[in-house]
Each structure stands twice: as structure tokens, then as C-alpha cells.
Amino acid sequence: MRITTWNINSVRLRLGLVERFLETVKPDILCLQETKCQNDQFPAKAFANAGYPHQAIHGQRGYHGVATLSRLPLHEITRRQYCGKDDARHIAVTLEEGIVIHNFYVPAGGDIPDPEQNEKFDHKLRFVDEMREVFTGLGDQPHILVGDLNIAPHENDVWSHKQLLKVVSHTPPETERLAALMEAAPFIDVMRELTADEQKLYTWWSYRSKDWRKSNRGRRLDHIWVSPALKDRALAKGRRAFTVHDDVRGWDRPSDHAPVTLDL
């Protein structure tokens, strides 16, 4: 099974890029975040024509939104609202094998890393805390968690650990909460598990850089985690198990996130 996660930053605006990617990479399951459209505006027919007739969509007007598109039948679809907000930030699907795939778009958190001064940052911290409560004690259940978690947890998941310690996405309150979530389930961070600690690993590059590849000031905001029941299958191919498609970041009018693919 091949699964891809991608913050597309408007699925309607970048539908052509997605279709090109699907034709090239051919994932069995595609998990999109920040689709930015209501359910009735989602280009469902285009995805069905591309070979993805099984669809789970959770959208809202102009903001957020997640969608899971699949070649494989989906036997159960659930959505959870976090922090009491009516935001489209989570959708889960169950496959025939009993594997549950969670697709998340965690709040970005604004610019000020202080929950008392910044309501958006407070929301982000509470969101991750609630995720930890929900996923505590998964046990032997086969779960996959993917998405734009908007946190780069490892010191080599950012271009400069020291310079970004006070920048939202890499602050200790965020990284510590993400570690607590991972431990509580528990989950295995597949990308970092298969990458040497000293190696840089990015999935996002800002639009602000005129030459993003040359400056290479990236962050790893997009994640693929698995529960222990799937660890052996996720790590079986070694470093070849996952791919960060950074070439897609260089396509015309791209998202600022690159797709990430895992082969199980």
C-alpha cells in the first residue's frame, strides 16, 4: 500500500498539480490538507476520473479542510471536532484490513509563541493536548496518522535549531507536546526513524524565499506515523520506504508543502 500526505493549499487552485502527481506517483491513498472548500465544492468527479472513487471529505468555506481519496474501499468514515471548534481539521477512514488512517491539519498557531498573548497559539497547544488524550493507549490496533501537524519536532527538522527555538512550529511547548502525543499512543515517527539524527529533513519551504531550493531554509511540518502493529511493515524497505517529493515544490504555482509518500 502506498499512502501520500500533502498540504495542497487549495485543492481547486492546484487540481492540475494533484492530477499530475497522481499520474506519476500512483498512491493508493492520498490525504490532502488545507483543501479550502466546502464539501459540495470539492472536485470529487475529477478524483473519481483519476481512479480515486472512494472519498472522505471534510471541508469548510475558504479555510482548513481535509480529504482522503482512495483506490481502496473505505469501510468507515469518522470526523472529530477538536477544542470545541467547528473546524475541518480531522477525518479518519478504515480500510478493509482494519487499518485506520487519520488525516490531520493541526492549527498553525500564529506568530507569537505565547498562549496568553496569542489565542491562535493557545488553540494549537490545546489541540495537540486533546490529540494526546484521544490517542492514549492504542495498543495493538493498526493506526496510521498523517498530515500537516505544523510542528517540526527534531533539531534537524528545521534549518536552524537555535534560531527557530522561539519561532512558532519549533518552540519547546509545541515539540514537547508532540513528543507526549507520540509516546502516549504510542506512535512511530516513520520518517525520523529511518533518517539519521544528524541529517536535515524538510517538507515545507516558505513562499517568501525567491530561490527556496538555494536558501533551503525548510522545516519538517508534514508527518507519517504508524502504531506498533504496523512498525515492521512501515520500516521493511528501510530509507526507501518514504519519499519527500521536493521536486513537486518546484512545479508551477505549487503549494509551499511537498507531498510525502510511505510504502507499506
Rank of each mutant, 00 (worst) to 15 (best):
R2Y: 09
T4E: 08
N9M: 00
R12P: 10
G16V: 04
L22K: 12
L30Y: 12
A44N: 05
K45G: 04
A50V: 01
A50R: 09
G51W: 09
E76N: 15
I77G: 06
I77N: 08
R79I: 14
D87V: 05
R89C: 07
A92H: 07
P107W: 03
G110K: 12
N118T: 02
D122W: 06
D122A: 15
H123V: 05
R126Y: 03
V128R: 13
E133C: 11
F135L: 12
T136M: 13
L138W: 10
G139A: 11
P153I: 05
P153Q: 08
H154K: 14
N156G: 02
W159G: 07
S160Q: 07
H161W: 13
K162Q: 15
K166I: 00
V167F: 04
V167M: 09
V168K: 05
S169Q: 08
E176A: 14
E183H: 04
E193I: 00
T195H: 06
E198P: 01
S206H: 02
Y207H: 08
R213D: 05
R220N: 02
D222P: 02
D222Y: 01
D222I: 00
H223Y: 01
I224K: 04
L230R: 11
D232P: 02
L235P: 06
A236P: 02
T243I: 11
W251G: 01
R253H: 14
S255E: 03
A258G: 04
V260L: 13
L262W: 10
